[in-house]
Amino acid sequence: MSSIKLKTKQNLVGWTFVLPASLLICVFYFYPIGRAIYLSLQTGIGINMQFVGLMNYKRLFVDKLFKTSLTNVLTYLTFQVPLMLILALILAYILNDKNLKLRGFFRVALFLPCATSLVSYSLIFRSMFALDGFVNTVLIKLNLLNNPINWLGNPLTAKIVIVLALTWRWTGYNMIFYLAGLQNIDPSIFEAAVIDGANSITRFFKITLPMLKPIILLTAIISTNGTLQLFDETVNITSGGPANATVSISQYIYRLSFQYSPQFPYAAAMSVFVFLLVAVLALVQMRVGDQR
């Protein structure tokens, strides 16, 4: 009897330990997303709100700037994420070799960009790629260019700079995931493969890649999620320009809510769209990952 009482008491203690944190998550994550969905079905300002159904969502389809921002983000996603993940995989594969000299040094150097904040590194890239900036100066001094390239003033090169910047910041981050994954692979598998005469490239494709698949999937989901929410970089490297050629969805939502005359309901509809996009893409990636 007393042991049952004790169990109940412990159970109660357990709930008091977990409840504060759980309630906070409900208040600051689940309630706001519910609120955003509710808001997205309305129109108006302040207390003058009207229920309008899916009107805000219909407006998304005819909004040119929304289309531009969506296309921009999907462009970054298509080019940047594979480039970065492949680079990270190769680096991790090379670094996993225990006989490699200066291994610790290389690991620290490659991971160092992760210590810089998003605003800070954005401003470094903005300065380096400015019209009169470091990159142009060096290219002209080396006689590779006659006239400076307006990197951030041209739609294509501005996008390239953003992709380069993102790759610089996040490759080491993903590499650490792969290194951790590689350490979990039993070395005897590699040894057996060496005895069977598999060279290092064959080993990479036949052993490393298949065994890292779950982690590659995870990093792909994290990166997709991050890219869809891109904000700090496009604001601080290009301010979304030239002529909105690099603007991201989060940046457009921010403008709609806090820079133009506030249109919370429409901005909320757009943010719910991002939420759905993140969820759907994560599901697709998990499905694709489960096959084979």
């Binding site: 759980s22 600051f28 309630y31 706001p32 997303i33 955003a36 969805i249 943010s271």
Partner: peptide, 23 residues
């Protein structure tokens, strides 16, 4: 409850910033 809480990691910040700001 824990599995439910983990779902919150899927919510992009941009999606909740307006209601949070209003709060």
């Amino acid at each position: 409850l824990m599995s439910f809480l983990l779902l919150s990691m899927m919510i992009p910040f941009a999606a909740i910033m307006i209601p949070l700001f209003m709060m």
